[in-house]
Amino acid sequence: MAARIDGPRLAAKSRTPRQLVVFLHGYGADGNDLIEIARQWQPWLPDAEFVAPHAPDRCSQSPTGRQWFPLTFRDPGERWRGVTAAHPGLDAFLDAELARLSLDDSRLALVGFSQGTMMALHVGLRRRGRVAAILGYSGLLVAPEPPDVDTGGGALQKPPILLVHGDADQVIPLDALFQSVNDLGETEVPCEWHLSLGVGHGIDEAGLRHGGLFLTRRFGLPFPKGR
């Protein structure tokens, strides 16, 4: 049975949730690491409820943090095995959250950072319905390893995607962004990207702005006035 997950939340400013934004944190962090972004975006997304679940497992390399899956950084296949193993638990969480709010996948956006981006892309592309958007910071699309491994079959969904990456990232190098964009293009999944100049493994104000505006656009909301 998949571990139950939960985390900090921010209710819709309008008190009538019409969208759900789920933040997926990086390796060694937890949901508290990203939920504050919701406060910056809330004026643009007044009908959105935000939640940032803690990953199910304690991080072996950061006992105070969490992990979606373990990493040794030595095994080339561990990322693929990791996203595949963590998929059911996150998928069940998303189902439960949407049911609680009486929403469907078209009202869901996934926002990931680093390992959370890997999860957002893997799960978001395989949902039963097409999600409204996937926004990934400092991460990558995990490809099967070895390349001919059985991926379970079935066509991928094709939600709008924005990937944001710092050109000074030494944790997940910039090449990962372009490889991910290329891999998504080969499966005809639309993908935009933004390069944050001088930024390492993190998110700058320009990246946050691009991400927030991307979500407003994909939820069919007007461009924020005075922004």
Rank of each mutant, 00 (worst) to 15 (best):
P63C: 08
F50W: 15
G31H: 09
A48K: 14
D57N: 09
G31A: 03
R39D: 05
C59W: 00
S60H: 15
D47Y: 03
A55L: 03
G65V: 00
Q67E: 15
A38R: 09
A48L: 12
W44I: 01
N32I: 06
P46N: 10
Q67H: 02
F69E: 15
E36K: 09
A29F: 11
P56A: 13
D33Y: 08
P53I: 11
A38P: 06
H54D: 13
A29H: 03
I35G: 04
G65N: 02
P63Y: 03
R39N: 07
A52S: 15
A52I: 06
R58H: 09
C59D: 05
A52Y: 11
V21N: 11
T64Q: 13
D30I: 00
S60P: 00
F23S: 12
Y27G: 00
A48C: 09
P43N: 12
Q40N: 07
R39A: 15
Q40C: 10
D47K: 01
L34I: 07
I37N: 02
P46T: 09
Y27S: 00
G28D: 02
D30A: 02
F50V: 09
V22G: 06
G31Y: 07
V21C: 10
P46C: 10
I35C: 02
G65S: 04
T64P: 00
S62A: 11
D57T: 05
D33R: 03
T64D: 13
L45S: 03
L20W: 10
P70S: 15
G65Y: 01
G31C: 08
V51K: 07
N32D: 15
Q61Y: 06
E49C: 04
S62K: 00
D33L: 07
A48F: 13
D57L: 07
H25N: 08
R66Y: 11
V21S: 08
L45I: 03
